[in-house]
Structure formats: structure tokens, C-alpha cells
């Protein structure tokens, strides 16, 4: 009995040390990312002419790097078709947003208010706007700040939902990107 006892202890000690010794060290330490890294807004003049692209690029997503903006000018008294493109690292996330349109909506906050006019041109299954395709009308030469907000899991059916009262509809922010917009003659 005594011998068995001693042997048991010895065996356990040996087994645990052996186990510790045999750990594997070939982990894959690199992982993919799904974060949004870029928002691109393409302004195409409806009456013809080359498009201009606003870009808000944040290559490290939620990391500490400062985002980079591309802010071309818009022409006064012009109607634009505005399409949005949302990019992740090596991946276009626009289709995903389109697929889950019922839980997503863009809002376009303009300061000063209505320095340019914005209207939604797309709808989800419930006939509620998404904001991936829009219509913009510029007026006289001016400047302002345009903030694009993408909300996720909001109650889109909330009555009179607009860019000033959207927090009431709940949900959380996936994109909040501001651009300096200069409208020239």
C-alpha cells in the first residue's frame, strides 16, 4: 500500500510536468479584421460631368492613428447623385449593409443647417430609407460641415425620424465621419 501510494504521487508529479512540457507553440497569431476603415462618397453631377469623391480613411479602424480626409469642392447650384461605399480592410462592406438594410440607416447632419439639400433615393423592404444612394442639391457658394452617421439596430419606423432626432430611435453608431464641404461657383 505504501509503495503504491508513493508511486501514485510520483506518477502524478511526472505526468503534470510532462504535460506542461508538451505544450504546442504553433498558434496562428494573426487574425482577420472586420472593422470599417473607409467611407467614400461619390458625388456625380446629374447634368453631366466628372464625379468627385469624398473619402474618410482610417486604416487602423479603432486604433490611435488619425484618419485622413479627402475633401474636394462642390459646384454651386448643381444637383448630384451621391452614392456611398463602406470599406473594411480588403473588403467591401456596402453589400452587407444593403443586405441588412432594415437595421441600418445613414443620417446626414449639415452645419449650418441645409447649406446643401439632401434626400434619400433608396429604400429597404419596409419602404424606409437607407442612405446609400441620395440626391444632393447645392445652392450658392458657401462652406459647411457634413457629418455622415451610420446607425445600426435602430427603430427605423420611428415617426418623423431625421438627422437631428435619430438618437431617439436607439441603436448604435457604426460610422461618424465629418467632412469640410466647400461649395464654389
Amino acid at each position: 500500500m505504501k509503495k503504491l501510494f508513493t508511486q501514485t504521487i510520483f506518477f502524478i508529479a511526472l505526468a503534470t510536468f510532462a504535460w506542461v512540457g508538451c505544450k504546442k507553440d504553433d498558434h496562428d497569431h494573426d487574425h482577420e479584421h472586420e472593422e470599417i476603415t473607409q467611407l467614400a462618397m461619390t458625388f456625380t453631377p446629374i447634368s453631366g460631368g466628372g464625379p468627385v469623391v469624398f473619402q474618410f480613411t482610417d486604416p487602423d479602424g479603432l486604433g490611435p492613428m488619425e484618419p485622413v480626409r479627402v475633401e474636394p469642392t462642390l459646384r454651386s447650384n448643381t444637383a448630384y447623385k451621391v452614392t456611398l461605399k463602406v470599406m473594411g480592410k480588403d473588403k467591401d462592406l456596402t453589400d452587407q449593409i444593403k443586405k441588412e438594410a432594415e437595421t441600418h440607416q445613414f443620417f446626414f447632419i449639415r452645419v449650418p443647417q441645409n447649406f446643401i439639400a439632401f434626400s434619400y433615393q433608396d429604400n429597404d423592404k419596409n419602404n424606409l430609407p437607407i442612405g446609400l444612394v441620395n440626391h444632393v442639391q447645392t445652392f450658392g457658394a458657401t462652406r459647411g460641415v457634413l457629418t455622415v452617421v451610420l446607425r445600426h439596430e435602430l427603430r427605423k419606423a420611428t415617426a418623423n425620424l431625421n438627422e437631428t432626432n435619430y438618437p431617439m430611435a436607439g441603436g448604435s453608431t457604426d460610422i461618424e465621419a465629418s467632412f469640410n464641404v466647400v461649395v464654389v461657383d
Binding site: 506542461v20 505544450k23 497569431h29 479584421h33 472586420e34 479602424g61
Partner: peptide
């Protein structure tokens, strides 16, 4: 004591704390 922390690589998101031993 021995300890091994492993991030299972299926999350497709940023690693908050690294793998370590």
C-alpha cells in the same frame, strides 16, 4: 504555475489582449 492564453482565430476582430504564456 504555467499559463497559456490563446485567442481562437475565428473572431475576425481586433485582439484585445494578446496570446501569452
Amino acid at each position: 504555475y504555467y499559463q497559456n492564453n490563446y485567442n481562437v482565430p475565428i473572431t475576425r476582430s481586433r485582439v484585445f489582449i494578446p496570446d501569452y504564456e
